[in-house]
Amino acid sequence: MTVPLGFIGLGSMGMPMTQHLLKAGHTVIVYDLDDAAVNEAKADGAETATSPADVAGRAEIVFACVNTPQALIDIVLGENGACQGEKLRVFVDLSTTGPPTEIEVAAGLEGTGITLVDSPISGGRRGAIAGTLAVMMAGPDAACEEVKPLIETFGKNIFRIGDTPGQAQTMKVANTLMASTASAVTAEVLVMGVKAGLDPNLMIDVFNTSTARNSATLEKFPDAVLPRTFNLGSMHAIVLKDLNLYLEAARTVDAPTILGPAVVDMWEESMAANGKTADNSTIVKFLESKAGVIVGSE
């Protein structure tokens, strides 16, 4: 018999992960500030709770996927936080909150009998829906092994990064900088190429059979930019939050940041033009407007 599970945060990533757990036959107790999201999860078979503490009072393992570091601190350590739940044994943070926040939460849970598993995800909403997310894990062996089969319901590639909370967050924000840089530079060179008279579809084909191949050229631009659908399912405000967490992590360990700030500047300019909730694939649009060209076919 499986133990009751909890899930806090039913946003664009949390909802599909919750649905995968439900489809696998688990009892899932959910909490979110958005009543509509809670009702959707309830319709899918989830039980509902009135607070993070209520979730943790009924579930032995609780997952969370929230948007900001402060949100994580609040739902775990705040008033009516999960740390007050009498049944909770393992708290799994699927959010991207950065190493310092994860370390702070781990310290706050010391002496409570609750183990923190630092387990951020990558792959976007598409990956969450498909159940193909990449998942990075850091925490004690026993806790990581216990939750791994649960994570496998929505994660395809699971990587054990280390034993200490914060290590998986470091890996995640490093991944974010690389992926976001790939998208930014792909947008820039495609706009330049189109302005110079090149076919963007042919450019992508060349990139993908040569040394310029990357995640943006392989999937993001062919799927969302060239057909002008702009529907990757991720948004500017989240990527910028994660990029700034990378810069914070680099400063914490006194690592050089040369390219990172320039990438942040480019995404900030794109967000100013497109809006906080704009799909990340729209990063090409503010460059198109500067160049007076369109990449793809409208």
Rank of each mutant, 00 (worst) to 15 (best):
G11R: 08
M17Y: 06
L21F: 06
L22M: 04
K23Q: 15
K23M: 10
A24R: 01
A24M: 04
H26A: 05
T27K: 13
D32K: 03
D32Q: 00
D32A: 09
D32I: 04
A41M: 06
K42G: 04
A46H: 03
E47V: 02
T48M: 09
A49W: 06
A49N: 01
S51R: 06
P52D: 07
A53I: 01
D54P: 08
V55L: 12
V55S: 14
I61H: 06
F63D: 07
F63H: 09
A64S: 14
V66R: 01
V66K: 02
N67V: 01
P69V: 02
P69L: 04
D74W: 02
I75M: 14
E79A: 15
N80M: 00
A82R: 00
A82L: 12
Q84Y: 04
E86K: 14
L88N: 00
V92P: 09
S95I: 01
G98P: 00
G98N: 06
T101P: 10
I103R: 12
I103T: 14
E104Y: 10
E104L: 11
V105Y: 06
A106I: 02
A106T: 07
A107R: 11
L109K: 05
G111A: 11
T112I: 03
G113Y: 03
I114Q: 02
T115F: 01
L116R: 00
I121K: 03
G124A: 14
R125V: 15
A130Q: 09
T132D: 15
V135N: 10
V135S: 11
V135P: 00
A138F: 04
A138M: 07
D141I: 01
C144G: 05
E146T: 14
V147W: 13
K156Q: 15
F159P: 00
G162Y: 00
G162L: 03
G162R: 00
G166E: 07
A168G: 10
M171C: 11
N175Q: 13
N175W: 08
A179I: 07
A179M: 04
A184M: 15
L190S: 11
M192C: 12
G193S: 10
M203Y: 09
I204C: 11
D205A: 15
F207T: 08
N208K: 07
T209S: 15
S210K: 04
T211K: 06
A216N: 05
L218R: 06
L218W: 01
K220M: 07
A224D: 13
A224W: 15
N231V: 00
M235H: 14
M235S: 13
M235D: 10
H236V: 00
H236A: 11
H236M: 15
A237M: 04
I238K: 11
K241H: 08
D242W: 09
Y246P: 02
Y246T: 11
Y246L: 04
Y246C: 14
Y246F: 15
E248W: 02
A250R: 10
A250H: 04
A250Y: 04
R251Q: 14
T257H: 13
L259H: 02
A262R: 15
A262M: 11
V264W: 07
D265H: 10
W267H: 10
E268V: 04
E268G: 03
S270E: 03
A272F: 01
A272R: 12
A272P: 09
T277R: 14
T277G: 09
N280Q: 13
V284P: 07
K285W: 04
E288P: 10
K290R: 15
K290T: 07
A291F: 12
V295W: 08
G296W: 02
S297L: 10
